[in-house]
Design a binder for these strands. Structure first.
Length: 819
RNA sequence: GCCCGGAUGGCGGAAUGGUAGACGCGGCGGCCUCAAAAGCCGCUGUCCGCGAGGGCGUGUGGGUUCGACUCCCACUCCGGGCACCA
């Protein structure tokens, strides 16, 4: 009964027991209310780092808490096991990506288990497993059938370092690859796309109702980038049948259009250019071919708006006047119609360009009198606009659109910044795209019964990073499912974000043999109630997953009514060391393993929970080891209290009259309320603080001769409350004391009657400064509070015999006496 | 440039408009011990004061309020996101 706490032995034993007893396994027919807690499944990069520890500890607290609350908690785990690092390792002369990846998975799994985070391992899934590949391919083919997947030639982002194309989302704002840091090039290639733009509006609008961090929702809104405006056509002077169509958000400024601009990739750019201008224009087109949007729009583009006059004119339909048509890099072929009406007076980019090329500037919106800037984009009365004169911007917009529609040259329209998702990757270690190309039948999907198309194992990795699939004849050579003739297999693989876009649905029944998603199981467990992960996935993964959930519903592969996969999202802060995020690639990791050896998993968990608010970033400092030490000390203190030498044998019930026992009981119930509330709010740091306070208090009461029954009850409740945070120690101590398994006990409920103190300390202020504290009944009346305040000698001293001019009483919180 | 966060002791941090600094780290002191470790107990924002006590104090300047870390306005610094999307 008095032995020291042997965390190594205890942690291992309880981990085995939770697994053996299936404490955290739930099934479809579980009668309890469902609750789905999910941490973003990790890329397996080896043993867990502190970021993982933090993530899984938070998730585990919720899993254990909700389980004690009586829910059937779905707590699955898996591995996002396709991806470039494994392939890069192979290229550098390492192992085959499969061997490499599976070793890293084993390492990560081991440290996750040592942490004592509990998962239903029966549900484990890995993206690179044949089963997952098969369903990934089945989904792809359904999307293809439904027109949600398609193949198109497009200007794409090519990363020379990764030897593959990238999604727009994977290119940083400085035009480099988020993974390799290489400058991304523009290439025109046939690629596979998923039609995410079909859902642009819904993805935008349903953000409002989600319980997600506001900044994540803002980032998604920005990314989708909805803008309302108008589209209209302008005849080209001297070209009978040619028109240029433009998109604008400011149709009201039409009279101020003094020129028009075509994107360099606009099909008309070449057509309308006059022989005299050809050389100038060709230079622009040539330059644009070699740069990405980002290059064109950022760095150099800011200095000079590279452009050229085409020699052509179009007619401004508002004024009826011809205006020159330019080609310029600041207009993108991929947004809107790839052509704009330029209004220098009301658009800064147009203004800069007009200045540089000596083009006229005509105001159509009167800026405020004190405006000393260049282009005015705010509201104001219209001028130089004939039938719009005097109207404000909104009214003029409405009138302009009405006019365009009446004239039959244009209409109201909505544009999005969001583009379709480019999913093909010219790499090996990913899910093969299941189609073949037949000289006779063209592109043909592989029949479902032939899936999965697996990656060949016997491949050679080239130092250039080129996909070995392209050189693997056995893989490339295929038979056309339609005509039976020879065909060539697609060698592109899918973006790994495809894998992570539906794994949470698969978890509902990960071994279903009939469909990628078991709809009945998905109806039971989806949506995810608490999704926990890093802010780094704010746009990419979370947007794709929202899209995929809808797309799967549309093609009948998941419940159609399920639109949003993650009801609540929590983004935990990251761990920094030396100013930057702790990561394996930076080589600044502090491994959790050493702490499993020296202080145990519970102490390390407690550190991450206690160190600060869960949403905030944490700096790993010289002090961190001291704090971990402190957490370990705290746990030892609880252990001694619960099962150590000083722990009393269980006393017989007595009446509840001993000194202080009532105070202790009240404190226990206040702690129950605080801890429960704090867990719901992810305020784990204050929850732990509350447990420490209660622990200190129990020590004091026991030393002060409080009723042993109250003390022992308090200790039991303390262990119940501690169970989600330090699950091993709490389980062991609780079992020794009560013979019961704490993790399947009901979560304690605070008694409202005990939440109110018998007497409360009420500060008394004189002129707003606290001068004394008096004890009052919590239900004290205003008169009673004032009387108690004025009865204070100290208060009287400050009054100096004078009558208060005013007394503000907010019983039992405060009394403020004014003189 | 625009949009979000944030700034509190030596340090991490706590505070529905009501005693600022809970809890912990570090530090100081005491008990225990032959001694140390561990543990237990106490003190620890700052200035003045022997003390009782008092002044000052939540990035800066203003405001609202009986009362402001908290609300409002302006600013400084730090962090993050977006940044020619027409």
């Amino acid at each position: 009964m008095s032995d020291a706490y042997d965390f190594r032995e205890v942690e291992e034993r309880w981990q085995r027991r939770w697994a053996d007893e299936g404490t955290y396994q739930v099934d479809l027919d579980d009668p309890r209310p469902k609750y789905y807690v999910l941490c973003m499944y990790p890329y397996p990069s080896g043993p867990a780092h502190q970021g993982h520890v933090r993530n899984y500890t938070f998730g585990d607290v919720l899993v254990r808490y909700r389980t004690m609350k009586g829910d059937a908690v779905l707590t699955p785990f898996g591995f996002d096991s396709f991806g470039l690092p494994a392939e890069n390792a192979a290229i550098k002369g390492g192992e085959h990506p499969r061997v490499y990846t599976e070793k890293r998975i084993a390492e990560l799994k081991r440290s996750v288990q040592r942490l004592g985070a509990v998962y239903d391992w029966r549900r484990e899934l890995r993206s690179h497993d044949a089963d997952y590949i098969k369903w990934n391919q089945v989904i792809f083919e359904e999307l293809l059938r439904a027109g949600l997947a398609y193949r198109a030639k497009a200007p794409v982002n090519w990363c020379p370092g990764c030897q593959t194309v990238l999604a727009n989302e994977q290119v940083l704002s400085d035009g480099t690859c988020e993974r390799s840091g290489d400058v991304v090039e523009r290439r025109y290639l046939e690629q596979w796309f998923l039609r995410i733009t079909k859902y642009a509006d819904e993805l935008l609008e349903s953000l409002d109702a989600l319980d997600w961090p506001e900044r994540v929702k803002t980032m998604q809104r920005n990314w989708i980038g909805r803008s309302e405006g108008a589209q209209f056509r302008m005849p080209l002077v001297g070209h009978e049948h040619l028109e240029v169509e433009v998109f604008t958000t400011r149709p009201d400024t039409g009279f101020g259009m003094t020129y028009a601009v075509l994107a360099p990739e606009h099909p008309l750019a070449d057509v309308v250019t006059t022989p005299e201008q050809r050389e100038d224009v060709e230079r622009i087109l040539e330059h644009a071919r070699h740069s990405t949007d980002l290059e064109r729009l950022s760095a150099e583009g800011a200095l000079e708006k590279r452009g050229a006059f085409t020699g052509a004119h179009c007619v401004n339909p508002f004024s009826g006047e011809p205006v020159p048509v330019y080609v310029a890099e600041y207009v993108l072929g991929s947004y809107g119609t790839g052509a704009i009406m330029a209004v220098p007076a009301e658009d800064q980019r147009d203004y800069d360009f007009a200045k540089a090329y000596g083009l006229p500037i005509v105001r159509t919106v009167e800026p405020p009198g004190d405006f000393d800037g260049e282009a005015w984009t705010g509201d104001g009365a219209h001028v130089n606009s004939e039938w719009m004169n005097g109207l404000d911007v909104d009214a003029a917009k409405a009138k302009a659109i009405e006019w365009l529609e009446r004239e039959g040259i244009g209409h109201r329209t909505v544009n999005y910044r969001l583009r379709d998702w480019l999913i093909s990757r010219q790499r090996y270690w990913g899910c093969p795209i299941p189609v073949v190309y037949c000289p006779a039948d063209g592109m043909v999907p592989v029949p479902a019964e032939e899936l999965p198309i697996l990656l060949p194992e016997d491949v050679e990795f080239r130092p250039t990073g080129e996909s070995p699939l392209r050189f693997h004849e056995g893989f490339r050579r295929a038979t056309c499912p339609t005509c039976g003739g020879p065909a060539v297999r697609e060698t592109d693989t899918m973006d790994t974000f495809v894998d992570s876009s539906w794994y949470f649905l698969r978890f509902a029944n990960p071994h279903d043999e009939y469909a990628p998603v078991d709809k009945a199981a998905a109806r039971r467990f989806m949506p995810v109630d608490r999704y926990i992960g890093g802010i780094t996935h704010a746009i990419l993964h979370l947007l794709y997953a929202r899209f995929y959930t809808r797309a799967l519903g549309e093609v009948g592969l998941s419940p159609a009514e399920l639109r949003e996969p993650f009801s609540q999202l929590f983004c935990q802060g990251m761990i920094r060391l030396g100013g930057s995020a702790m990561s394996k690639s930076r080589g600044n990791v502090v491994s959790p393993d050493q702490y499993f050896e020296t202080v145990g998993a519970d102490a390390l968990r407690l550190f991450h929970l206690f160190i600060g608010p869960a949403v905030e970033d944490v700096d790993w400092t010289d002090q961190s080891d001291d704090i971990i030490e402190g957490c370990s000390r705290y746990l030892a203190r609880v252990w001694r209290l619960a099962v150590g030498e000083a722990a009393g044998s269980r006393p017989v019930e007595t009446d509840d009259s001993s000194v202080g026992s009532s105070d202790l009981r009240r404190e226990v119930h206040r702690t129950i309320a605080r801890v429960s509330d704090d867990i719901e709010r992810y305020a784990f740091n204050t929850a732990v603080a509350a447990l420490m306070e209660l622990t200190n208090s129990i020590y004091k009461h026991r030393g002060g001769g409080a009723d042993p029954v109250a003390v022992e009850d308090a200790i039991d409740t303390l262990l119940e409350l501690l169970a989600p945070f330090a699950p091993h120690l709490a389980a062991e101590a609780y079992e020794r004391r009560t013979g019961k398994h704490v993790h399947i006990q009901p979560w304690p409920v605070a008694d409202p009657a005990l939440l109110r103190a018998e007497r409360v300390k009420m500060p008394v202020q004189v002129n707003g400064k606290t001068r004394d504290v008096v004890e009052v009944d919590p239900d004290v009346s205003e008169e009673g509070a004032v009387a108690a305040a004025l009865a204070s000698d100290r208060v009287q001293g400050f009054l100096g015999g004078k009558e208060p001019t005013r007394v503000i009483a907010r019983p039992p919180k405060i009394v403020n006496v004014l003189v």
